[in-house]
Design a protein around this nucleic acid. Structure first.
Lengths: 339, 339
DNA sequence: TTGAAAGCGCTAACAT
DNA sequence: ATGTTAGCGCTTTCAA
């Protein structure tokens, strides 16, 4: 492996001049420049990135903290983040926290060791006070999360509006008994979503009963179980917001097995607009998230913070979700008939 | 940010001793060791990874080259790879080639710049001769690909057996007109899969007609189109291997819309065992890949090669796929009836 | 058991 | 326009 020294020697010049050519600095005559380039070419020279990192005090690497990468939403997010990072000359290190506080902290340590120039967090496990202390070492940007007290940039969906929109849609379809699912992950966003949901119901004069809230539901199998549980309620809901397309799929699958007619017997709203929502029968009404926009924004922001060396700043970048109206919440036959 | 120098000064010792404590070297008295640890604690000292990389000539980072991370198979693979890397004290850099030769080369350059200690390739775009030249700079391991001439470790599925098994299954179900889909990506593995498929047919005295080979088919939408195309064939196949669960889903969705009864009118085999295969109607017979085993093996192997500094070695680590038998290839009523 | 000193490969003052 | 030199933070001979 040849070094800048080798190039300099071969070109009959100093390391400085070679470095200048390497970094496109002015004040290098075209003649010497060509000499250097030829030498580089000849030796197959490539600058050593560890040396550069040490000298420049920056690694050109960004860490992305994520609970579990195989979740479709997160893998989509990473896909865009990686493309955006690559376009800006950065590499992306993937850090799966697996919902562990300890793992999250160990990955945040990459900031202290200077292995990364910045961190994008897509979920939060530790108390904010703990995470806050890492801000002395580099910028952190939240993407897909909100922490009110955090003095950092946040890129997020307005979950209050999201929850409100979902409930409103089901109310408009004539539903009064509406169930709500969440995945058990507690965050300000999740709280806001439920608040928005309850607010819409309240405006329609409906009091949300907590027995209609199913917690810790996130997989297809969870959806199947939920359906069984729902069947056993005295008053079975006529609609359900599942919080996840996978859960929606599970419910639908089990409901069909039980001979229910969808959406007449049960209206269903998913979340994330996964591909399968357009494949299963009935096609699932779901929530579309602006994944690309959020990822791009998060990358733009972390880039800016890295370069301004500004680690603390209270910035909110709010995005809105949309509802994809599909068959699983079509007007119900029986309602139409009796109205 | 405090350095090893600061720690040494505060502890009243030399940098050498601090470094020894840091790296668990012998010949440090417990007394001094405690002193150093206290000083580290007090300063919140963390070693700078760029300095370590430069000095040790290794980065503790591995690059994973992947076409597109949001593909379920690849995101599963990455999930396991990341966990395995983390367990061994390595970070993972994600590199999406997006099927571009140029991008692939630029990511392989991470090996030259010493930004990574090794590369795991899950797909190959450039000719082997080009990739081979990077072996002078570090180890490369193939995971999910085979290149016969490549002098490096390869972790892969025996695609010949895979294709053979699929065809055999459909033949046993009484099918004679069987269609075959591929995603247009050309590799030795894909070639082998088709060969195995054709071999099984040949053994049953069936000549595979190339008009039953649909190329460049990989998405749900492609599946929908394929169904339309198939309908228009003089002799419509009674079974189809789709090469992808997404394609299978598309075909099923469109076939049902057209009023076909599945699997009676058309038997379908998917690939990858994605979650949706158990959700859609009928549940899809598909191929299960040992993703975890392959990922773990790939990580073990690259780790070994990094530490042995052995960049060339002809090693094949072969795995087998399994068939998940489900409703989409159940015995056909009409066949049973007429038999 | 501990320390002094050299050096990994690069960049940027500073000098010329 | 080009070169000299110091130093980023760490580890490792080598010497004591």
């Amino acid at each position: 492996m040849s070094t800048i020294e080798d190039v300099a020697r071969l070109a009959g010049l100093s390391r400085t001049t070679v470095s200048r050519v390497l970094n496109d600095h002015p004040y290098v005559s075209d003649e010497k420049k060509k000499l250097v380039q030829q030498a580089m070419e000849h030796l197959g020279y490539v600058p050593n990135s560890a040396a550069r990192s040490l000298r420049n005090q920056k690694s050109q690497i960004i860490a992305v903290l994520i609970p579990k990468i195989s979740t479709p939403f997160f893998s989509q997010l990473i896909e865009i983040l990686e493309m955006a990072a690559s376009a800006k000359g950065y590499q992306l290190i993937i850090c799966q926290t697996q919902f562990s506080k300890q793992k999250e902290r160990s990955y945040l340590n990459l900031l202290k060791t200077k292995q990364v120039d910045g961190v994008i967090m897509t979920s939060i496990e530790n108390d904010w006070s703990i995470i806050d202390s890492y801000l002395n070492y580099g910028p952190i940007v939240l993407c897909n999360e909100v922490v009110e007290q955090a003095e950092i940039p946040m890129v997020f969906i307005n979950q209050t509006k999201s929850g409100y929109m979902i409930a409103k849609h089901l109310l408009e379809r004539g539903h009064k008994h509406i169930a709500y699912c969440s995945n058990g992950y507690i965050s300000e966003g999740m709280t806001a979503r439920k608040e928005g949901f309850i607010k819409a119901l309240a405006e329609a004069g409906i009091h949300f009963q907590s027995k209609l809230h199913f917690e810790r539901v996130s997989t297809v199998n969870d959806g199947k179980h939920i359906f069984r549980e729902m069947e056993n309620l005295n008053i079975c809901p006529t609609a359900i917001f599942t919080g996840s397309d996978a859960v929606a799929a599970g419910i639908i699958s089990e409901a069909k097995k039980a001979g229910w007619s969808l959406p007449d017997d049960l209206a269903i709203v998913g979340y994330d607009n996964m591909e399968l929502t357009e494949i299963i029968e009935p096609m699932v009404t779901t929530v579309i998230l602006p994944v690309e926009e959020m990822a791009s924004k998060a990358m733009d922001v972390i880039y800016e913070k890295i370069h301004k060396k500004q680690f603390r700043s209270f910035e909110k970048h709010e995005f809105a979700s949309k509802l994809a109206l599909r068959d699983s919440t079509m007007f119900r036959r029986n309602l139409v008939a009796t109205s």
